[in-house]
Amino acid sequence: MRWFWIDRFVEFQSGRRAVAIKCVSLGEPHLHDYFPGFPVQPPSLVVEGIAQTGGILVGEYYGFSNRVVLAKISSAKFYALPRPGDQLRYELTIESIQQDGSMCRGVSYLGDKMQAEVELCFAHLNERNQSRELYSPAGFLRMLRAFGLYDVAIDANGQPAVIPQYLLDAERQDLGHA
C-alpha cells in the first residue's frame, strides 16, 4: 500500500492554489475498520489528503528544494462523513508563505457541499536538517506524474509549469538514459 491520499490533481496554480480529488472506494481496506459495518473515509485521512495536496503546492513553489513537513493542524472542522462511491474535492489555498514555513487553508467538498475545513501549518526544512532522503528524486517525480500534477500545473504567468531539471535528470538516470 502506498501512502497516497489523493488520486489526481485537477487544478494547480503555482504559489496560489491547488485542487485534487480523492475517490473513496469500498475496495480500500481501512474503510472496513473505522466504524465496522458503516464504511466511511476517516476524517484523519481526509486531513492527510488535504495536507498532501497542500504540501505539494507549497513544495512546488520552491522547486521542491525544501522538505515540506506538516507541522501543525491549526483547526479542523468536519461536516459530513465520506462514504464509498463519493468523490472528495480538496481545494487548497496558500494563505502565507515564507522561506521557513507556510500556512494553507483547505476545504474538502462532496459535490457542492462543504465536507471539511482545515487550516494547516507547514515547516520547510532546508538541507541542514535533512539527515536522510525520504524519496529518491526519480521516485518523487514518478509520484508527481502519477498524481497528474504536470498535466494541469501552471506557473505564476499562466504558462505550463516546468519540471525542475534535477528531477528530470534523476528520472533519466533511473531509466538508464544518462
Partner: peptide, 20 residues
C-alpha cells in the same frame, strides 16, 4: 512552529507585514 501561525494571524488581522 506556533510562531508562524501567530505571525500569520497578526498579519491578517492588522493588515501588517511582520519580518521574521
Amino acid at each position: 512552529i506556533d510562531f508562524l501561525d501567530i505571525v500569520f494571524r497578526l498579519e491578517k488581522t492588522f493588515g501588517i507585514d511582520i519580518p521574521r
